[in-house]
């Protein structure tokens, strides 16, 4: 039995997508983060949006990489605390938090965070995001520690395994 190239591509895309989805699903995240632009230029300001579930009352704690500077937020000023590289947002039902960080002239780092919902006594991690300027040495980016995690490793392994099987079958 031969599989078409199209099916191979779809299968591969699905598996690659899992690499990115798995960490979120695996940690049961209720809180997500998006960063724009994904590839900022040196010294550029990037916008971060933390999306929160309905009825979230608690805090989001963001750890900015060394050399990255907090550049402001639309969150109420009385609900923000910035100490060293730690940024704490108090949340009273808001659906999202928007803030900005200025990245260094050249460099990279993982933007990590945690959340704590005091309304239902739950807490968790926000999937880490790598922010890097073009040409930055990936070795200097450090480790996310939390992410992509085992879920991603399994997905990556699965992806490669799947691809090998498909290639093998096509050759038969």
């Amino acid at each position: 039995m031969k599989l078409s190239n199209r099916r191979v591509i779809i299968f591969t895309i699905t598996l690659i997508s899992l690499i990115f989805i798995c960490p979120v699903a695996a940690s049961g995240d209720q809180v997500t983060r998006s960063v724009t632009p994904e590839l900022p230029g040196p010294g550029e300001v990037v916008d971060v949006v933390i999306t929160l579930p309905d009825g979230f009352f608690g805090a989001v704690v963001e750890e900015l990489p060394e050399g990255f500077q907090y550049a402001g937020s639309q969150h109420p000023s009385g609900g923000i605390k910035f100490s060293e590289q730690t940024l704490v947002f108090a949340v009273t039902g808001e659906k999202e938090i928007k803030y900005s960080i200025r990245i260094p002239g050249e460099g990279c780092g993982w933007l990590k965070g945690t959340w704590e919902n005091l309304g239902d006594s739950s807490e968790g991690d926000i999937t880490a995001v790598l922010i890097s300027t073009p040409g930055a040495d990936p070795e200097s980016c450090g480790s996310s520690n939390k992410s992509p995690g085992f879920g991603a490793l399994i997905a990556i392994s699965g992806c490669f395994a799947g691809m090998l099987v498909l290639i093998h079958r096509r050759r038969e």
Partner: peptide
Amino acid sequence: DQVLKEEILDYISATRL
């Protein structure tokens, strides 16, 4: 709203920072 936010920040400052 203002008080709750401030109290949450105080709580996080004490428990995490």
